[in-house]
Each structure stands twice: as C-alpha cells, then as structure tokens.
C-alpha cells in the first residue's frame, strides 16, 4: 500500500497501519539510534521508546510525506536526551567498543568531534549526511529558508573541523 495512505490511516488511529509503517522503518531507525548511542541494547530500547512516543503523538503528524523525518526527529530528540543523561566517559567507552566495526582510525575522531557539536548542528549534519534528507526538505521541516539551512550546514561542518583540529592539538602536546 502507498505509504501516504498508510500514514493517513495511522493518523486516524488505525493500529495496523501504524505498525506496518513502524516495521518498515525499524531498520532505518535502528541505524539512526546506533549512530547516536553506539550499542545494540540502547538502540533497541530507543526503537521501543520511539514507537511509543510516535504512537502517542500520531495526531501531530501534519504532512504525511514527511512521516519518516518526523520519526527521525523523535529519535534524535530521544537520543540526545539519553546522551545528556549518561556520562561522557561511558559514551567514549562505547565508541571504543565499536571501533571494531571499522578499520578506519578516523572513526573515533569523527565521533568525538560530533559529541562537541551543539544538538542543532549535530542534527543538521545527521539529517544531511546520514539520513540523506535533501536540504529542501530540511528547510520545510524546520520552516526555515533553504539559504539559511545551507549557511548553518556550513557552520556545522566548520565546527566539526574545529573539533578535529582541537583533537589534533591535544595529541601534539
């Protein structure tokens, strides 16, 4: 069935439509959660919590076309809360523990640099370079002109670079 129709049904309270949608996005949501939380248990818990929150707020979905980004928004909010609550050291430990998934040493650096960004900057980068959401759509989502989004995206990339460089300096000491 067409996704848009499913979303409309789910908004009207059709549980089956809601579950079909959630199951079709569960894997994408898992990747999002994992990119923030870095371990399976927490990412699965995030899926559970986001399903719960999404169901609770289905009525607030204004535009069925943006249902997926709406879900991602809920997921990002949730993950940011979790990160704020957990201690920094714990997170770094997690990052180390998944290093095994990549041969690339820069992975750890990217993660650390991402942690230094503001929530907003991190969200922007996440939407653009992880979820591949078009700038045009990010603009709609945030109700902000495209030009502004582009500028902010640049700023976020600059902040990320600064994060790398800072790290580099520390190392040199």
């Amino acid at each position: 069935m067409n996704e848009k129709i499913l979303v409309k049904k789910a908004i009207k309270g059709d549980d089956e439509a809601f579950l079909t949608l959630m199951h079709s996005y569960e894997e994408a949501l898992y990747r999002t959660a994992f990119s923030y939380l870095k371990n399976e248990g927490d990412a699965l818990e995030a899926i559970q919590e986001v399903t719960y929150r999404a169901y609770r707020s289905m009525k607030t979905v204004k535009e069925p076309t943006y249902f997926k980004t709406w879900l991602i928004r809920i997921m990002m909010n949730y993950c940011q809360d979790v990160i704020k609550k957990s201690k920094r050291e714990v997170l770094e430990e997690r990052i180390l523990s998944i290093q095994g998934i990549t041969e690339d040493y820069t992975f750890l650096e990217v993660e650390e640099a991402l942690l230094k960004l503001s929530d907003y900057e991190r969200e922007l980068l996440h939407l653009k370079y992880f979820e591949d959401v078009k700038i045009k759509d990010i603009a709609v989502m945030w109700n902000t002109p495209e030009g502004t989004i582009k500028t902010r995206l640049h700023k976020a990339l600059r902040a990320l670079r600064a994060g790398f460089e800072e790290k580099g300096e520390v190392k040199r000491v």
């Binding site: 569960e26 894997e27 899926i47 399903t51 719960y52 998944i98």
Partner: peptide, 26 residues
C-alpha cells in the same frame, strides 16, 4: 561523515529483535 554512515550501515542486528522492540513500544 559518509564513511561513518557506511560503517554504521554494516552493523548487523536481528530482524526479530527490531520487530519485537517496535511491538513492545506499541
């Protein structure tokens, strides 16, 4: 960032676990 995305894309998770996470949230 793209490389990071690809790495995370390689992380495996069982479909069953995902399914039941959605189910229990619901």
């Amino acid at each position: 960032l793209v490389q990071r995305k690809n790495s995370i894309g390689l992380v495996e998770v069982s479909k069953d676990k995902l399914h039941s996470a959605v189910q229990s949230g619901f």
